[in-house]
Amino acid sequence: MKTQEELTEIVRDHFSDMGEAATLYVQVYESSLESLVGGVIFEDGRHYTFVYENEDLVYE
């Protein structure tokens, strides 16, 4: 099982292909040891929320 830090790095790496991230945040109260819930805000103003669970990243 991966730590939240490892899950955060996986998510950060995925979003790095989409541009320069200004902020990546984790909603600790919705996350667990198995999943990471949060969002990313890019330098150009785009904002996505995400759920990373079971090696699957879903974002909108």
Rank of each mutant, 00 (worst) to 15 (best):
M1L: 11
M1N: 10
M1I: 10
K2F: 07
K2P: 07
T3A: 04
T3Y: 05
T3M: 05
T3K: 04
T3S: 09
Q4S: 05
Q4E: 07
E5R: 09
E5A: 11
E6S: 05
L7S: 01
L7H: 02
L7Q: 02
T8H: 05
E9Q: 14
I10H: 04
I10D: 02
I10A: 05
I10R: 07
I10L: 09
V11K: 01
V11P: 02
V11H: 01
V11S: 03
V11L: 07
R12D: 01
R12V: 04
R12K: 08
R12S: 04
D13W: 13
D13K: 15
F15Q: 02
F15A: 02
S16Q: 09
S16W: 09
S16N: 09
D17E: 12
D17G: 14
G19E: 04
E20M: 13
E20N: 12
E20L: 12
E20V: 14
A21H: 11
A21L: 15
A21G: 13
A21Q: 10
A22W: 14
A22C: 15
A22R: 11
A22M: 14
T23Q: 09
L24F: 12
Y25M: 04
Y25V: 06
V26K: 00
V26I: 13
V26H: 00
V26S: 00
Q27I: 15
V28P: 01
V28G: 07
Y29L: 05
Y29P: 02
Y29E: 03
Y29M: 04
Y29V: 03
E30P: 04
S31R: 08
S31Y: 12
S31Q: 11
S32P: 04
S32K: 09
L33V: 09
L33N: 12
L33G: 09
L33F: 09
L33T: 14
E34M: 10
E34I: 09
E34T: 09
S35G: 06
S35P: 02
L36V: 06
V37K: 12
V37N: 02
G38D: 01
G38N: 02
G38I: 13
G38T: 03
G39M: 14
G39V: 14
I41E: 02
I41H: 05
I41Q: 02
F42P: 00
E43T: 13
D44M: 07
G45F: 09
G45I: 06
G45Y: 06
R46H: 03
R46D: 01
R46K: 04
H47Y: 09
H47K: 05
H47S: 06
H47T: 05
Y48L: 05
Y48K: 00
Y48F: 11
Y48D: 00
Y48P: 00
T49L: 11
T49N: 04
T49G: 01
T49P: 00
T49Q: 05
F50K: 00
F50T: 00
F50D: 00
V51W: 10
V51Y: 07
V51P: 00
Y52T: 01
Y52E: 00
Y52C: 13
Y52N: 00
E53F: 12
E53T: 11
E53N: 08
E53K: 13
N54P: 03
N54H: 08
N54G: 07
N54E: 04
D56A: 14
D56N: 15
D56L: 15
D56R: 15
D56S: 15
L57H: 04
L57I: 09
L57G: 02
V58A: 07
V58C: 13
V58T: 11
V58N: 06
V58M: 08
Y59I: 13
Y59P: 02
Y59L: 11
Y59G: 03
Y59C: 11
E60P: 04
E60M: 12
E60Y: 13
E60K: 11
